[in-house]
């Protein structure tokens, strides 16, 4: 038997592994070591009290670094934003977006707009991180309990950080209507808006679905629209300049997998 993949190893650490995998992990030294790593990690997580306040070093530290490296000591841009960052890890009752953080990130991304890497160059990296989503999971949609089947799902990732940024699910209602449900942290922008696109695998053709308007936005697809031809879900920052084409400033992306 070959070694277990990371997914199976993590499942064992969570107590969810299959019997066959558990037997293998007991007998295989490499896999046993990996499981032990995961278990050490879960123990460390369990030992955290969940609240760590990050503290910002005084400005003098940057001045010293700048002096030693030839960077610009007078610039304020290096200093972390005041007030001191304090990631509150105490879990929220609901997975709410954190307005401050999201605003900062979007602002940073906008600032990078002119100098950042071409957005299509990032497509490969985003696609590589794609995870197969739930297949055919039946659920009641949140708006009115209307039953729908999730036929494809795309875990969304922030392109800059590759961290998880919600999901996009393709639902098919009983009447055959295809709905793309985008759940992600929404942040209202002052001089721009967020637009949702479906893009083909060549990053060539694309269709705009419309604006992201909240943490959960539903887009009804035209009848007969074949999502398999445009499997990449993309959210971009669009300036309010009236230009209807993609700005090239993608912030979030995922690939629909059936």
């Amino acid at each position: 038997m070959s070694h277990l993949d990371e997914e199976s190893l993590a499942a064992i650490a969570l107590g969810d592994g299959s019997d066959a995998d558990a037997v293998h992990a007991r007998e295989c030294e490499a896999c046993a070591t990996a499981v032990a790593d995961y278990e050490r990690l879960t123990q460390s997580l369990g030992a955290l009290d969940g609240t760590i306040e990050l503290q910002t070093p005084p400005v003098s530290v940057w001045k010293s670094i700048a002096a030693a490296t030839g960077a610009d000591a007078s610039t304020e841009s290096a200093q972390p934003d005041a007030p001191a960052p304090a990631p509150t890890l105490a879990p929220a009752a609901e997975p709410e977006p954190a307005p401050g953080g999201v605003t900062d990130e979007l602002a940073q991304r906008r600032a990078r707009r002119s100098t950042g890497p071409s957005w299509w160059a990032l497509a490969g990296a985003a696609a590589a991180g794609v995870v197969v989503g739930g297949v055919g999971v039946s659920l009641a949609s949140a708006d009115g309990g209307e039953p729908a089947d999730v036929v494809a799902s795309a875990p969304l990732a922030q392109l800059q950080t590759e961290s998880s940024a919600g999901t996009a699910d393709l639902e098919v209602r009983e009447d055959g209507t295809q709905i793309l449900v985008v759940e992600t942290d929404y942040e209202e922008l002052t001089d721009a808006y967020l637009e949702v696109w479906l893009i083909d695998e060549d990053i060539d053709g694309m269709v705009s679905l419309g604006h992201l308007t909240g943490d959960r936005t539903e887009f009804t697809l035209p009848e007969g629209f074949d999502v398999e031809l445009f499997p990449i879900v993309d959210i971009s920052i669009e300036p309010t300049d009236g230009v209807p084409t993609h700005s090239g400033d993608s912030v979030t992306r995922g690939v629909l997998e059936t």
Partner: peptide, 25 residues
């Protein structure tokens, strides 16, 4: 611990919330 808490935060939602509920709560 500081680093681990920071990395949990960096997971982003919904994962950081799920991890927090599972391990902190």
């Amino acid at each position: 611990n500081v680093l681990l808490a920071y990395e949990v935060e960096a997971l982003g939602d919904p994962r950081k919330t799920i991890v927090a509920l599972a391990y902190f709560e």
